[in-house]
Design a binder for these strands. Structure first.
Lengths: 333, 333
DNA sequence: CTGTTAGCGCATTCAC
DNA sequence: GTGAATGCGCTAACAG
């Protein structure tokens, strides 16, 4: 595999040519270099298991063909899926990918961006964006190639889902099932996906002339625990309870389900729950979750293209259309 | 942030010293270099936002302080948790980490290892090991620093859980609850964790003089889907059904739960289910999952130390002890 | 402690 | 199409 790798110079010597000729013959970017001598060099290189020293090459070329991806947590399945898709598409384009996790701290995010940049990544893809994100503004100021995925601040090139439409579809699904008392469990509104999903929810409610109950719109976090807490708030209320809940991501929905179970409320019967994201788990829950599917692969591909080459081929904000996946957690009232 | 980064040479010129002096003054490895001139260099560097070009530094130093991590899937929560823990401990030691996913293909794994090595990672940590793993044998032959995590082939330095003990505890828990008809849902036996968990299961059964039913030991995959299939096999059998099931990881257990639900079998009542791993989700399932907790952080730390520096400070196989977490998915018969 | 010299391994001028 | 020369930016060996 390696140990003392054979070097370009040595290959050149073996082939009886200069290192520059050897370098050209082995440069993957010139595919029209087919002289006899070039072919010979390639054969020799192949035979001796020559592998270009990427570090040296990167230094000289001034580019690393590496993109850095920033997510809050990799243990968040949506983020893991997003990253896997980005890594795949990048690999197909001969790019290498590195991830870093920033948790929910803007400060940590700043550090991590710096660390990625110090490593000379050619571009960044960020899934951490909040609506007024100073870190991302700083990327723009410094003209650092980057794109946003899943969430946008409306100012950098972004590949996101049509969150408002998705939320509208989700809410409409509940309404079409006959529900009128519908609660929204959402993440913090400072993220664009939360904001637009909330807008979609409200629009669907208003369009159907349904009353919005302020106590039934809850904005805590994005994780299971937040969903559970939100569910506890709704289900332990002395007042009226909602008959349906739209949780703006699947993890929140799972948390709500857990809470419902603890309160002895039958999911899909006493209460309908719809999520957002369609993570692999959702279809395999004891009560499979009705949810909104996001085309992650397509989203990742666009984010990649935006990061690498966003010279006006694409609009600033690129949206993919989500679709409803109906399962057992929702039913007619 | 960057753009045209100021270079060491320029800092040296500004400080009126040679580049080598500047280099030494800014070398993080010499913390005892505190002459007046050195301090001055550092001040100037700080003022001008100097950042060492890591690529050039890596090339010259011949080391990257980067470790490569190989996992099957990042969308497998256990793997994501493992990686996050490795990345954290590595960062604390001033190492950078990159991940790659190999799916379940040994061929792909080989490619990915090569790609990581081409990038000159200083060491590898692999969570992909099977019992007789040619890729890992190859690492040993080529004396490439590496360690195994979660799974071992018994020949490379490894940081794993005590799978046999964990499985014994899990099975014993079911037996102590009065169960006698116990099924095992396990991954493919070619992975050490599956193998040892199966051994622990069998030992507990034998120690308690319980009969092993061959139809009740199922070895499919590691994912939810496999768990669901396995559950379907058990629950749709015309013959006798088990009253308890030990699934050797939480995802399998979730799959089984889904199957149980579909068959109208009440979890924690008609059937007790115990998992393994304690992923965050498990405690928040509608019926919280009894499971075996693995100390991932400690496991990751040891794997890191083994990868970086395994010169006999540690035994070949390092085991962390798992503990039982009792929840509602198991109950007395 | 400091400066000089000499590369790490490769890619890119620029002549021929 | 090829080779000689020249660094990318940094670090290490050596001598003082």
């Amino acid at each position: 595999m390696d140990n003392k790798q054979i070097t370009l110079k040595e290959i050149a010597k073996l082939a009886g040519v200069s290192t520059s000729t050897a370098s050209r013959a082995l440069d993957e970017r010139f595919d029209n270099y087919n002289s006899k001598i070039a072919k010979n060099i390639r054969e020799i290189a192949e035979k001796h298991g020559y592998i270009r020293n990427i570090i040296a090459s990167n230094l000289r070329r001034g580019t690393t063909r590496t993109i850095g991806v920033l997510v809050p947590y990799l243990s968040d399945t949506v983020m893991a899926l997003l990253y896997e898709n980005i890594a795949n598409i990048a690999e197909r384009h001969n790019y290498f990918t590195v991830v870093a996790t920033a948790g929910n701290s803007k400060e940590r995010e700043r550090e991590v961006i710096k660390s990625l940049l110090d490593r000379k990544v050619d571009a960044l893809i960020l899934a951490t964006c909040s609506l007024d994100d100073e870190n991302i503004a700083s990327l723009r100021r410094n003209k650092i190639p980057h794109s946003l995925i899943l969430r946008t601040d409306g100012q950098s090139y972004s590949s996101i889902g049509d969150d408002k439409a998705g939320a509208y579809i989700a809410t409409k699904h509940l309404i079409d099932l006959g529900h009128k008392k519908i609660a929204l469990i959402n993440g913090p509104i400072k993220s664009s996906n939360s904001k637009y999903r909330q807008e979609g929810f409200i629009e669907a409610m208003k369009t159907s002339n349904l009353k919005l109950n302020k106590d039934w719109i809850i904005n805590l976090g994005f994780d299971i625990k937040s969903g559970e807490k939100s569910g506890d708030i709704l289900f332990s209320s002395k007042k009226e309870r909602p008959t349906a809940i739209f949780a703006t991501n699947d993890e929140l929905a799972i948390g709500v389900m857990s809470s419902a179970y603890n309160h002895g409320i039958a999911i899909g019967k006493d209460v309908s729950i719809i999520g957002y994201g369609d993570i692999p788990l959702s279809s395999r829950l004891p009560i499979p979750l009705t949810t909104i599917q996001i085309p992650f692969e397509y989203m990742a591909e666009r984010a990649f293209n935006l990061a690498i080459n966003n010279q006006g081929h694409y609009p600033l904000i690129n949206m993919v259309t989500p679709t409803l996946i109906s399962r057992k957690s929702t039913s007619k009232i």
